Simulated assay, not measured.
Amino acid sequence: MGRPPHPTDPSFEEIWPQYLRGVLDSSAQEHDHRQTCFKKTSRKVERLSNEQRDKLCRFLYPQPIAETTSMDDDGKIEIKRANAFMVPYVPAVTGRFGCNTDGKFIGSGAFGMALSIYIASYTAKNSLDSAIMTSALLASLKSIGDPRLLQGDKCRTFINKTLNNASARRELSAQQVAASLLGKPNHYTDASFVHCYWSRTLTWIAPDVFPAFSKTPSDAER
């Protein structure tokens, strides 16, 4: 595409729309359902119909068509939209950087708070959110079989598989990876916390099923 046309160019008004159209086409500004749209589910995009993809997309595409731009009571702007899959953009920013962008107007406290949470979530991913645990449990159930038949060692295997699946599905941000590679601590606090060990918790809940860490007389004496 080359450099964007300069506003002082005599033919800028004619060249700019064509250049911007080229940027939008080449930078995938128009949303296309991919696996990341369904990463919080266990379903593969290849197995979903077009109707299912539109319904399950976590980015909520397609968006409603809007003939005019309007603002609701919460300060949310519903922009004029002729293409249900076009991601919002600022022409000057998208054209200048020549890449995919996502422009949103933050006009209220509620949306400002949502933006703060969004940025914080990208900086420090949640360790194990409900979506990760649900997908991990589902994967473990598929590998174990009928959960009603879980007894003895199969219970331990099920827990191990669930934890392994949860760890494998955990997301890490670029900041977390960089901090680990550089040997930097990832947590600063002046508070103190009680250690809770998962294996001992399992023993406390079901000592007959998880007896490995049950207290023996020698443990009690120590």
Rank of each mutant, 00 (worst) to 15 (best):
M1H: 06
M1I: 08
P4L: 03
P5Y: 11
P7H: 03
P7G: 02
D9L: 00
D9K: 00
E13N: 10
W16V: 14
W16K: 11
L20R: 09
L20T: 02
G22D: 08
V23L: 04
V23E: 02
D25E: 05
S26I: 14
S26P: 05
Q29T: 04
H31Y: 03
H31C: 03
H31Q: 03
H31W: 04
D32P: 05
Q35N: 10
Q35E: 12
Q35R: 06
T36N: 12
T41N: 09
R43G: 10
K44I: 07
V45S: 09
N50Q: 12
E51L: 15
Q52K: 06
K55T: 12
C57N: 07
C57K: 02
C57L: 13
R58A: 12
L60Y: 07
P62H: 02
P64D: 14
I65C: 14
I65H: 11
E67K: 15
T68G: 06
S70P: 04
M71V: 15
M71T: 15
M71N: 14
D73I: 10
D73E: 14
D74W: 08
K76R: 10
E78F: 13
K80F: 08
R81I: 12
N83L: 04
A84K: 05
A84C: 04
A84R: 05
A84V: 04
V87K: 15
P88H: 00
P88F: 02
Y89A: 01
V93E: 13
G95E: 07
G95K: 06
G95I: 09
G95V: 06
F97A: 12
C99W: 11
T101N: 02
D102V: 03
D102K: 04
F105I: 10
I106Q: 00
G112N: 08
A114V: 08
A114K: 09
A114L: 09
S116Q: 08
S116I: 14
I117R: 08
Y118F: 13
A120Y: 00
A120Q: 07
S121E: 10
Y122T: 06
T123I: 07
A124Y: 03
A124W: 01
A124D: 03
K125V: 13
N126M: 13
D129W: 13
S130W: 00
T134C: 08
L137C: 15
A139Y: 06
S140F: 01
S140P: 03
S140Y: 00
L141Y: 07
S143L: 09
S143H: 06
I144T: 07
I144W: 00
I144R: 02
D146R: 09
D146M: 05
R148V: 00
L150S: 04
G152V: 07
G152T: 08
K154R: 06
C155Y: 07
R156F: 01
R156C: 11
R156W: 01
T157R: 00
F158P: 05
T162I: 11
T162Y: 09
T162P: 14
T162S: 07
L163I: 13
N165C: 10
A166R: 01
R169E: 02
E171S: 13
E171C: 05
E171A: 11
L172R: 14
L172Y: 15
A178C: 03
L181E: 14
K184T: 01
P185Y: 00
P185F: 00
Y188N: 11
D190T: 07
A191R: 13
S192P: 05
L202S: 02
T203E: 10
D208C: 10
V209R: 04
P211Y: 03
T216W: 01
T216S: 15
T216Y: 02
S218Y: 12
S218M: 12
A220L: 11
E221F: 02
R222C: 04
